[in-house]
Every structure is written in structure tokens, then in C-alpha cells.
Simulated assay, not measured.
Amino acid sequence: MADYLMALWLAGRSTLADAVAGMSRLHAPIRVGLAGLVVSGCFLEPNLGSGSTRTKMVLILLLTLNGLQATILSRRLAHQVSVRPPTKLLLWGAASGTISQVCWWGAIAIGFWNGQH
């Protein structure tokens, strides 16, 4: 959702202030979703010897670390709402969004694949 809000801003369909405000409201649900992913994974008795399970665990760790740094990025963007953010922040945001998408979809795909096999 945070990536979608930023895409709306990049497309000129919202202001940066609206996108940043929306992202700040999403931090709690994103953390709950991440916690749910971790807790549900623990109850599913993962095969820790499996390469795909270990890959999923690395993806979740990266997702968590990315979320922590995204909080810092969000604060910095909040100070730029009245002007165009520096390219450095925009690139940081693009990298953060890419990492987020790769980790979420990768973890979901591995979980689905493990459930089928």
C-alpha cells in the first residue's frame, strides 16, 4: 500500500504530503502483518533444514530491516513535503519499495510452494 501511495505521487495523482501521511498511518498495520507472518510461520512447524524455508527466513529478516530503515526514510520525506525531495531520497525510496516487494512476494511464493509440496 505504501508503494502504491508513492506511485500515485510519482504519477502526479496526489501530493507528497498526502502520500507521506498515508504511509505514516500504514506503519502499524504493516508491522501487524509482518508479525502475523512470523507467528503463523512458527506454528506451521517449518522444516529448518529446507533451503526454501531458510530463504524465506532471510527474506523476512530483510523485510524487517527494510521496514526499520523505511521508518527513517518516511521521517526524512515528511520534512520535504513542501519541496521536491532530493534525488537521493527518491532513489532510497525506490530501493526500499523494491526490496519490500521482492521480500513480501518471495516469502508468499515460498510459503505457497512449501504448502503444495
Rank of each mutant, 00 (worst) to 15 (best):
M1G: 15
A2P: 13
A2I: 10
L5E: 12
A7V: 01
L8M: 05
L8D: 11
W9Q: 00
W9E: 03
A11L: 02
R13S: 03
R13Y: 04
S14E: 08
T15R: 14
T15H: 14
D18M: 09
D18Y: 08
D18R: 09
A19T: 12
A19C: 03
A19H: 03
V20I: 14
V20D: 07
G22W: 08
G22L: 14
S24T: 06
L26T: 10
L26Y: 08
H27W: 15
H27E: 11
A28S: 12
P29I: 01
V32G: 14
L34T: 11
L34D: 15
L34S: 04
G36A: 10
L37V: 00
V38C: 00
C42H: 03
E45G: 13
G49A: 05
G49C: 02
G51C: 05
S52P: 07
S52F: 06
S52A: 09
S52H: 08
R54D: 02
K56P: 10
M57D: 02
M57N: 04
M57L: 10
V58S: 13
L59A: 07
L62R: 07
T64H: 00
T64P: 01
T64R: 00
L65A: 10
N66G: 04
N66M: 12
G67I: 06
L68F: 06
Q69H: 02
T71M: 06
T71S: 08
I72N: 14
L73P: 00
S74D: 03
S74I: 02
R75F: 00
L77W: 14
L77Y: 03
L77N: 08
A78T: 12
A78L: 06
A78H: 11
H79E: 09
H79Q: 13
V83D: 15
P85W: 10
T87L: 04
L89P: 09
L89F: 07
L90A: 07
L91V: 14
L91G: 11
G93A: 09
G93N: 15
A94D: 12
A94W: 13
A95E: 08
S96E: 07
G97A: 10
S100R: 04
S100D: 11
V102K: 05
C103I: 11
C103H: 13
C103Q: 04
C103W: 02
W104G: 11
A107G: 08
A107E: 05
I108H: 00
I108M: 07
F112Y: 10
W113T: 12
W113H: 05
W113G: 10
W113A: 09
W113L: 15
N114K: 09
Q116L: 06
Q116H: 12
H117D: 12
